[in-house]
Design a protein around this nucleic acid. Structure first.
Lengths: 147, 147
DNA sequence: AATATAAAAGATAAAAACATCCTTTAAATT
DNA sequence: AATTTAAAGGATGTTTTTATCTTTTATATT
């Protein structure tokens, strides 16, 4: 058994978006093959996930020769939070750590307050982190998309 | 798809331990039926999880009439961190948020530093939170194990 | 010793997540 | 218009997680 902050689908989604964000102006489009290679993910599965991002208007997709995916206006303005929300829902940001159906200030689980601090920390970070920040790290060789 | 800080198995493990920690001196043992009822979990599945906790010496189990589970010496001294580690492993504390196999200071993912802060926050909290703390909240009616 | 109780162990099943493959649709090029 | 390219959509398969059921083992009581 293994706990995870994000699902694999979500990790692929984030890395795909970051990769697309690293592409230079004028050629900001990439096909699924290139994306999957860049982030070392299974191609078909990644394609499915990108479909969701397209449906949710974070990506644009173009069919046919020279087609591919690119980040939409909305995607460019969206915080990391939004990608997670679209793929994993927001249970990681609001759900009870111990599984209580109704966990709140008035009916808290045994670690409600301590966890709230962590969730808020996480939420704040995800709300303020942008693709641009992340892409910049990749572009300058400070951070990496694979291995 | 849904991300989760802890697996269900782990939540059941934690809640079971907390419930056992709330039992008064002299009758600190409970059977699987009582435990599962107290934390609103599936009985058979919870039993499996407790087996692991017994194997890892966080719990003692006694078979036969008046048998059941109780927290071991080691269990009583262990931080919440240990329960998670036993059931979910420590990937939540050390794993890469974006799935990089080798994610480190020298080869970081795009959110390595920001996530490190959160993981450290989480780890610190889990290392310092004790069953006793949690049980006290339950006993005083400040916090809850179910609904 | 026989019986009842309760956990351990093992087999099996259901659901969710992860993943692939094949067909269809849309767009560009010849 | 025919052909090629590439994503969308649908069906299907695999693995992991969650869950249940049955049999076995250990302990206490009669």
């Amino acid at each position: 058994i293994s706990a995870k902050m994000f699902s694999k689908a979500c990790k692929y989604a984030i890395n795909s978006m970051v990769f697309l964000a690293t592409l230079p102006e004028g050629q900001e489009r990439a096909g699924i093959k290139d994306i999957a290679f860049a982030i070392n993910s299974p191609e078909a599965f990644t394609a499915k996930i990108l479909q969701t991002l397209v449906r949710e208007n974070l990506l644009l997709s173009i069919k046919g020769p020279n087609g591919g995916f690119e980040i939409s206006e909305e995607g460019r303005k969206s915080p990391l939070y939004r990608i997670v929300q679209v793929i994993d829902g927001d249970s990681i940001f609001v759900g009870c750590a111990l599984g209580l159906q109704e966990c709140s200030e008035s009916h808290p689980c045994a670690v409600h307050h301590k966890f709230k601090a962590i969730r808020d920390h996480l939420t704040g970070m995800m709300m303020t982190t942008t693709l641009r920040d992340m892409a910049l790290g990749i572009q300058t060789g400070i951070s990496f998309l694979k291995t």
